[in-house]
């Protein structure tokens, strides 16, 4: 094979994946079984995990304090696997401060508690606009903040992963934790939307 010049740009992604997977399996680095197990583990992480944390924080002040000081430990307390995951930071919205999470450099996302990043989060438009035109961006989700609310855009550039602890809607005062968890969406925990009670 001397003199071979492999041009990766000429090989389609799917073909490259099959070849690399075959080589990694042959070398005992990643077997098909390991890959299947890893996919299953990754699929287990979903916004439902983050929503459970938010709901618990809304009903339990002690848990809320822990979640804001050490998100990783708070997640582990709810049985969410965090081993090997980057440290999790949680930022709390207040009546006059709204957080919005973005990664302008790539697509850092709190995957352990929210699952795969959504397509829009990884898009050039989201990454470019969140830091420069956050209010225009929120408007595309139909999110309009009350007058006087400041936005703090969080650019997730390094070793932490960030999620938002949104404000609990006033109408949910009598709701239990499970019902609250069912209300919270991934977009609420990134800050492009606000938790909303349907039909209000």
């Amino acid at each position: 094979m001397a003199g071979t010049v492999l041009r990766l740009e000429e090989v389609a992604g799917e073909r490259l994946l099959r070849a690399v997977a075959a080589l990694l399996a042959a070398k005992g680095i990643a077997s098909p079984t390991e890959i299947t197990e890893q996919i299953a583990m990754t699929d287990n992480a979903s916004p439902a995990q983050g929503a459970r944390m938010v709901a618990r924080a809304w009903v339990d002040p002690q848990f809320r304090a822990l979640m804001l000081s050490d998100g990783t430990r708070a997640a582990e307390m709810l049985g969410i696997p965090m081993r090997g995951a980057p440290p999790l930071g949680v930022l709390e919205d207040t009546p006059d401060l709204h957080h919005l999470i973005v990664c302008t450099l790539c697509s850092c996302y709190p995957r352990a508690v929210l699952g795969y990043p959504p397509f829009w989060y990884k898009s050039g438009a989201y990454r470019a606009r969140a830091v420069r035109d956050p209010r225009g961006l929120l408007a595309e989700w139909g999110t309009v903040l009350d007058p006087g609310v400041r936005i703090r855009v969080v650019d997730s550039t390094a070793d932490y992963r960030w999620m938002v602890l949104p404000l609990r809607p006033a109408e949910t005062a009598k709701w239990n934790e499970d019902r609250l968890a069912a209300l919270v969406r991934e977009t609420d925990m990134i800050g492009v939307t606000l938790p909303r009670v349907a039909g209000d």
């Binding site: 997977a21 990754t42 397509f119 829009w120 438009a125 606009r129 420069r132 989700w141």
Partner: peptide, 23 residues
């Protein structure tokens, strides 16, 4: 990108995506 609308549609990760991610 500053004038580009966000594509907010859900795109479920494909088998290809998941395998690359897992490796």
């Amino acid at each position: 990108y500053i004038c580009q609308e966000i594509d907010r549609a859900a795109h479920t990760p494909t088998d290809f995506d998941k395998e690359v991610d897992a490796i």
